[in-house]
Design a protein around this nucleic acid. Sequence first.
DNA 1: TAGATTGTTAATCGATTAACAATC
DNA 2: TAGATTGTTAATCGATTAACAATC
Lengths: 213, 213
Amino acid sequence: MGTENSRLAVSLSVVRRLTRYLRHLEELENDGISRISSQVMANQLGLTASQIRQDLNSFGGFGQQGYGYSVEYLKSNIESILGINQKSRAILIGAGNLGRALLKNVDFSKCGVTLIGVCDCKESIIGTNVDGMVIMHIDKLSEIVKLSKPQMAILAIPPASVRKIAEQLVSLGVYGIWNFTNVDLRISDPKAIVEDVHFADSLITLRYRVGQQ
Amino acid sequence: MGTENSRLAVSLSVVRRLTRYLRHLEELENDGISRISSQVMANQLGLTASQIRQDLNSFGGFGQQGYGYSVEYLKSNIESILGINQKSRAILIGAGNLGRALLKNVDFSKCGVTLIGVCDCKESIIGTNVDGMVIMHIDKLSEIVKLSKPQMAILAIPPASVRKIAEQLVSLGVYGIWNFTNVDLRISDPKAIVEDVHFADSLITLRYRVGQQ
DNA sequence: TAGATTGTTAATCGATTAACAATC
DNA sequence: TAGATTGTTAATCGATTAACAATC
């Protein structure tokens, strides 16, 4: 009751699948398909119909017996479950190759995220413009964070300073860390949430699976 | 018996954790630590000691009762389980921002991978050199693959042509696909193995978790 | 109405954790 | 030897799948 979160916590795997469903529903919509059953969608995604229905029903009933799901209605419900519409703010730390590639390749707005700034420590690029964002000096990090209060930071910097900067960010209240560095982040503050994108781990896993036939 | 694979298939989660253990053991080695117990390592990684021992014991006993694990010995065993030493070959498809960022940021050799070529379709960059690799035209893909027989391909291209190129690669015998495009790849050939790096899904998941406190 | 397909409960499966005997 | 810590079995937990009554 009231404003507290009355929904039981849902597992991370469910949330990750919801983002897949969303992506797939967008494709269906683009193809002009307005209705889908859990069975058909399961075939398309390589899952079971049961799993899709279970996942959706942990947030409520979005379908209709005998008919299936309306693509548009389901899509908009998943969007609101994931909260894509209330924008969160993020700051990008590191404007090297990787940082710039992320700027160009990630549709932040579609993910419900507004980028509020880009920092780097390389003097020669401070003040230059990348994709409409002016690069600021990392020394001003604390100032920028206090001003714009981002909820998330994107770490696209070399390993050396990662832990220090991550702790600084969390202590400034930036609890979401999108970690692209090859460093295992263990942050002391339990409020911190780290989402790792470890390229090396991913490549090693693929290599292993391919090797097993 | 003989040369066939006598080991029971191990779950993907175990393999992914092995790569984490490996990374952690490297750090320990750099810090001059030569011995570690499952309990201490579990604390450092935020896992349980049981899980670490179970994971390792699905491949054999690498520890010593009453002592723990030798960092060096365990590291070299995990390397050989993952097969880091027998190099696999990969081809990079797409030399845009993302492709180039991967070239600079991923230590392929450390992942047991040799890059055999880089392809793109943009005429103006064909023949130019990026990080020691000469960019070749995507039209030559089939030729290059037949010559160098890569086991894996890295897809860092825009969504439009992804499915076509992925099917082409798989039909040429390149079964491992490291997919950086925002496309859900369902490949008809069951031998294909896709490892997705979906930036958007990852960001949406982080955003959701941060929103839940 | 009959057919289809959901929402939901129950059964199964697999992964994680706990416990402890073996042993260094 | 006593203490520590593994290897391994058994217990628990959670996630996936199956089944089916509800209902559009």
